[in-house]
Amino acid sequence: MSNIRTANSFDLDALAVLLNDYRVFYQQDSDEAACRGFLHKRLERGDSCLLVHDAGHGPDGFVQLYAMLSTVSLASRWLLNDLFVAPQARGRGIGRALMQAATARAQEHGASSLMLRTQTHNHAAKALYESLGWQKNEAFDTYLLSVPGSGS
């Protein structure tokens, strides 16, 4: 899908709305200003790969990737941390196209693998991932520790 491109600073306002909606989906408080600030830092620092779908009217979907290193595989691995398509744009293959673009971008950068996690009840997303050949990792458990006072 040729409507996928790398995000830029002109996308900030539209992306802030999308990121806010994504976070609300994950039961976070709505805060578009904080989303805009977070995205601004990502674009300014270049510490994520942020791809958007834009059919000419501004972004209506995005995928965000973070590069990591794997000591076990002695290679680069990318975390597909975020995938979101605006509700009014769903059902047109945008999520699939963003996932495929993320895979292509990781491959271009020599990543050995992509990884992601999603909520156990997000059946639509899991069906998409599995249809694209992603496999559930049964070998490792995921643990999370919140660190007080940390920021973006």
Rank of each mutant, 00 (worst) to 15 (best):
G95K: 06
P59N: 09
L83S: 04
L83E: 07
A111P: 00
S112L: 12
Q88R: 13
R77I: 14
R105D: 15
S76L: 09
G93Q: 07
R96L: 05
A97F: 07
R90D: 09
M99G: 02
G58L: 09
A55S: 12
L79E: 05
L65G: 01
L80N: 01
A55Y: 02
P87T: 09
Q107A: 13
D60S: 12
G58S: 13
S70K: 03
Q64F: 08
Y66N: 04
G95W: 06
P87A: 12
G56S: 06
A106W: 10
A97T: 00
T103Y: 03
T71V: 11
H109K: 10
M68I: 00
S113L: 12
L80E: 04
G61M: 00
G110Q: 07
I94P: 01
T103V: 10
N81A: 15
V85I: 13
D82C: 04
V72K: 00
A97R: 07
N81M: 10
M115E: 13
T71A: 14
A55P: 10
S76A: 13
S70T: 06
A75F: 05
V72H: 08
A89K: 09
V63M: 04
A67C: 01
L83N: 07
F84T: 02
R90S: 10
S73F: 01
V63L: 10
R77D: 08
A106I: 07
A67K: 03
R96D: 03
G56L: 06
A86V: 03
A101M: 02
A97N: 08
A97W: 07
S113H: 15
L83R: 04
G110N: 01
L114W: 03
L98G: 05
G58H: 13
L69Q: 07
G110S: 05
M68L: 13
M99E: 03
L69S: 11
L74E: 09
R92H: 14
T103K: 09
S73Q: 02
A97M: 00
L79H: 15
L80S: 00
L74K: 14
T71I: 11
R92S: 12
A89T: 11
R92C: 11
G93R: 01
Q64T: 06
Y66T: 08
T103P: 00
V85D: 01
L65V: 06
R77S: 07
A111E: 04
V63K: 02
S70Y: 03
A67H: 07
I94K: 09
A55N: 10
Q88E: 15
L83Q: 03
A101P: 02
N81W: 00
A55R: 06
D60K: 05
A89F: 12
A101Y: 00
A102Y: 02
Q107S: 12
V63S: 14
P59E: 06
G93W: 03
P87V: 01
A102M: 05
V63N: 04
D60Q: 15
R96F: 00
M115T: 14
S112D: 14
L79A: 13
P59G: 10
L74M: 13
V63H: 08
M99S: 02
L83F: 09
P59K: 07
T103E: 15
L69M: 13
A104Q: 14
Q64W: 01
H109P: 00
P59I: 10
G110F: 08
A106L: 05
A67V: 11
I94V: 06
G61K: 05
S76D: 11
